[in-house]
Amino acid sequence: MNLVLDAIAWILDPTNWEGVGGIPQRLWEHLWISAVILLIAAAIALPVGVLVGHTGRGREAAVTVSGALRALPTLGVLSLFALWLGIGLRAPIPALVILAIPPLLAGAYAGIESIDRRIVDAARAMGMNERQIVGKVEVPLGLPIIVGGIRSATLQIIATATLAAYVADFGLGRFIFSGLKTRDYAEMLGGSILVIVLALVVDGAFALTQRLVVPAGVRATRFTELRSRPARPRAAVG
C-alpha cells in the first residue's frame, strides 16, 4: 500500500500543481483535446450513422468499416501518424478521430435501427416526410443508444489520448511516460490514478445523461430494464 500512498503524496504535492507541465495544465489539455476530437468525429460519424440507420442502405459497408477500424491497434496508428506528421499535436488528432469513429457510427445506426418499424411506418402513413421521421421520431427514440455510442467513443478518446502522450507532449499520459523514463513509480501511478478518475467521472456523467435522454413515455415502461442493464459501451481501451 506504500505504493499508493506515495502516488497520493505525489498527486497532493503542491509543486506538481504549478506552472508548465503541472497537473491542472495536463488535465486541461487532456479535456479540451478530447472534446475537440469528439466534436470532429461526431460531426463525421453521427450524420452518416443516422442516414445508414434510416435508409438501411450502406449498412454492410458501415459494419465493415467500423469493424476494420476497430481491429486497428491504436498504438500502431499513433506511431504511424507520428512518423508522418512529426512529434506534436498534429499526429494524434487525426489518429484519435479515426479511432473514435467506429463506436459513434455503430451507436448511431444501431440506435435508429432499434426503433419498432411499425412506429416509423405509422409516422409515414400519417404524412410525415423523411426529414420529420428522422427528426421527430427516430432520433428522439434512438437517442439513448446514440448517446451510448458517444459514451464509448469518449472513453476511447480519453484512453487513446493517454497513450498519445507517447508521441506528443500533452495530457495526463505525460506523467506516466515521464515516470516510466525516470523509473519514478509514484509519478506514473499518480498519473494513472488521475486518468482513471477522469475516465470514471466522465463515464458516470454519460451514464446519467443516457438515463435522462430516455423519452418520458418510453421511460414509463423501460426504466427498470435500463437500470439493471445500462447500454454498455464497448469502448476499445487502447
Partner: peptide, 12 residues
C-alpha cells in the same frame, strides 16, 4: 390511418 398496435409515438 389507423393501424394494428395503434402505431402511436411512444415518446409523445
Amino acid at each position: 390511418y389507423v393501424m394494428q398496435n395503434s402505431g402511436l409515438l411512444p415518446h409523445r
